[in-house]
């Protein structure tokens, strides 16, 4: 099963956030970059699923030239190759435009002989938090889509015997997978015909760390490059705003166990101690 994972380079926010001069985005100077933990899990899930079915994992991103770092990070943990759609201002496309560009790339790769049985995204990007690119991409491709999925079992048949990830069941690409995620009343199990799009939610698999050989491989990883089209009026953003500064100041109740009675006083005042 050949799997495409769509990822996004995002600023790695650790401390206080400030805005750029125009107020249109956060000031990224001095910040490192990463991808969301949902996407890290999507990559891990893709690697496990491809290994169980004898396929390859390709990572795709729309972003600035520097986003190749995130593609190489994915290759370092086991993805086979990457696709960079270069745009200096990927945010200008908005979720509809991004989904369309990703769809165009999937179609173009198919014409070039590289087709994917499964396309994974994270459930939402860590920066824009739009919760919709995977779904829009599925509609663009005409594929079925699931979101909030945590694990995949290739070949799993509804109610039938399950071949879970890791138990290599012959290596043939499955036309159907079983997908699991946490729903409002328990673990939900879906059967999904391929090709399909799945938006992955953190929590089902543990992303692996890169090995030394993985890091070496990442440096030489084949990266196919595309140029993004000129963005239209794709982004409905007017500006960004920061929440008001918290004005409350901390009351230190004391040091160590001796301060326990003071804390219990506070809890009694709030009224949360069970009688």
């Amino acid at each position: 099963m050949d799997i495409l994972v769509c990822i996004k380079r995002v600023p790695d926010i650790a401390g206080t956030v400030t805005l750029n001069a125009a107020g249109t985005d956060i000031d990224e100077s001095g910040l490192g970059h990463t991808m969301s933990s949902h996407e890290e899990c999507a990559i891990e899930l893709a690697i496990q699923t491809a290994a169980a079915t004898g396929g390859a994992v390709t990572v795709l991103t729309l972003g600035p030239a520097e986003a190749v770092e995130q593609l190489r990070a994915a290759v370092a943990v086991g993805a086979h190759d990457g696709i960079l759609v270069e745009s200096a201002d990927p945010g200008a496309f908005g979720p509809e435009g991004i989904a369309q560009i990703l769809g165009d790339v999937v179609r173009d790769r198919a014409e070039q002989g590289q087709s994917f049985d499964l396309v994974l995204t994270g459930s939402d990007a860590a920066d824009t938090g739009d919760f919709q690119v995977g779904i829009r991409l599925a509609y663009d491709l005409g594929y079925p889509v699931l979101t909030n999925i945590q694990t995949l079992s290739p070949g799993g048949e509804a109610g039938g015997p399950e071949a879970s990830v890791g138990s290599n069941d012959g290596g043939a690409a499955a036309a159907r997978i079983e997908a699991r995620g946490i729903g409002p009343s328990g673990t939900e199990i879906f059967a999904l015909d391929l090709p399909a799009v799945v938006a992955v939610q953190e929590g089902g698999v543990d992303p692996r760390y890169p090995s030394i050989t993985g890091r070496m491989k990442a440096k030489r990883a084949p990266i196919v490059e595309y140029d993004a089209p000129e963005p239209g009026a794709g982004n409905p953003r007017i500006r960004l705003e920061l929440p008001p500064e918290k004005t409350r100041s901390v009351t230190i109740l004391g040091d160590g166990p001796d301060a326990a009675p003071a804390l219990v006083d506070v809890l009694e005042e709030i009224g949360v101690i069970r009688p």
Partner: peptide
């Protein structure tokens, strides 16, 4: 909410 709730986006 954007950036995990650390900033807000104004939009129409």
């Amino acid at each position: 909410q954007v950036h995990g709730g650390t900033a807000f986006e104004r939009l129409r």
